[in-house]
Nucleic acid binder design. Structure first.
Lengths: 250, 250
DNA sequence: TAGATTGTTAATCGATTAACAATC
DNA sequence: TAGATTGTTAATCGATTAACAATC
């Protein structure tokens, strides 16, 4: 508001840019960590990334918001807003540089600095994740697996050793591992989380259907298939219920 | 508004209930399919369900919103709103009946009428899902698996037959299967989805990281691990960036 | 009765979308 | 220049939360 008097002819958002440049921050790209981002936007970024990588493979070097929106089923202005969080700036009329966008998204999401992780629970799901080469493209490398089953300990799964769970709390700090993945049955998930916290793990990606109790500073993400199944089966069930509902109304 | 004159002394929401009963719908429970529900609420319902089942195992028969909220990290009024979508009604001072709540949630989510499903892609992830007994508690039963790999076709995985993919479009309508699960690599997911649509599948639970192109009436749910990994690694990366950021500010 | 808890309405908060100026 | 596309602001839409009456 006070800036209005300084330069009346320039519209508000141009003024904002000038102020921004005054602080010698011409490239917002240089401090993406300073910004906050809505959860939905954050979750759309990997979609853009995936799409852009495909474009790059097709040797397409520039893209507009409308084109992205068209292919991903989003309105252009939403794409624009989302991309702005990464700090990237486009060119009117020509759009955005595909390679710059990819770079910006990867930097923003921290996919450049690889996260090494420990996985606990070498069952079917654990094995599936251990074999998931594509994770490395998204900055995640699972370096070892843990289990309590003596039959599994000492084995190798997808070139990764399966170690005894009681080694975890000791190994994690020595290898400076900050990320833990839980793919155990629900019953033991809490005990595993406790071990991880003891080992100084900062973030837990939890595939067990339990609400983990951990100290407040630990980041927990729940990958709860049941939540997802819920909405799917509700929609499907509703579809088959519809004729009945119509009947009742008559 | 027009109803105000009818009965001035009764406050608005009591009036609403009266009107509702006038339409001979005393139990909202009887027509849960008529209501719409916000996506976030829908995804919280399985959490309540899981929690309530645990309570029931402990022989606790009544529960209040505050208790639920306490344990699940939600404010009481949000719990109340969510539960209202299922049409359940509680009793002031004593709370809700645990068993009625469980019943209401299951009915609302359609978990009573079992969804039989076909799964395509008998790799690690597919095997993990096939072995997931708990799904049956949530109304899902995977009845057969499909694959194109000759080494897998004809095998049995967790007591389920692995069939050749080209049988799917024929079998689905004959067995009246409406739900398909895709756990294939991204490259073939679209082709699999096409087969499912040909077979009359109504809903697809997609674990491959691709945006599927299907007719508009098909329900698709994407279980994209990368979206989830994105926000986790962003938060973790940001945490480690913080000291640097502070330095820059100085 | 008093206190606890539900059910409802209204206010708030946050994300999306509409409108439009700036730019190439 | 004209048209396309970006970047910004303001309006809209939807979910959450606050406040409070009703009920047991």
């Amino acid at each position: 508001m006070t800036a209005v008097t300084v330069c009346k002819t320039i519209p508000p958002y141009t003024r904002y840019m000038v102020i921004d440049m005054d602080l010698s921050n011409p490239l917002p790209l240089s401090r993406p960590e300073a910004r906050s981002i809505p959860q939905p936007s954050l979750q759309r970024l990997p979609q853009y990334h995936h799409y852009l990588v495909e474009l790059e493979a097709k040797r397409i070097s520039r893209v507009s918001c409308s084109a992205i929106g068209q292919d991903l089923g989003l309105v252009p202005v939403q794409v624009r807003k989302d991309l702005q969080y990464t700090g990237i700036i486009g060119k009117p009329k020509t759009g955005y540089s595909v390679s710059e966008l990819i770079q910006a998204i990867e930097t923003f999401l921290g996919w450049n600095n690889i996260n090494e992780a420990f996985l606990v629970g070498a069952g079917n799901l654990g094995t599936a994740l251990l074999g998931h080469e594509r994770f490395s493209k998204f900055g995640l490398r699972i370096v070892a697996a843990f289990d309590t089953d003596p039959a599994k300990v000492g084995q190798w799964v997808h070139e990764k050793a399966v170690l005894s769970l009681d080694k975890l709390a000791d190994l994690a700090p020595r290898m400076s591992i900050h990320l833990g993945i839980i793919t155990t049955p629900a019953e033991v998930a809490q005990a595993v989380a406790d071990e991880m916290v003891k080992g100084g793990i900062q973030a837990i990606w939890n595939f067990a259907p339990v609400k983990l109790k951990v100290p407040e500073h630990i980041i927990v993400h729940n990958e709860d298939l049941y939540n997802s199944l819920a909405s799917l089966s509700w929609k499907l069930a509703r579809r088959f219920r519809v004729p009945i509902q119509v009947k009742e109304a008559v």
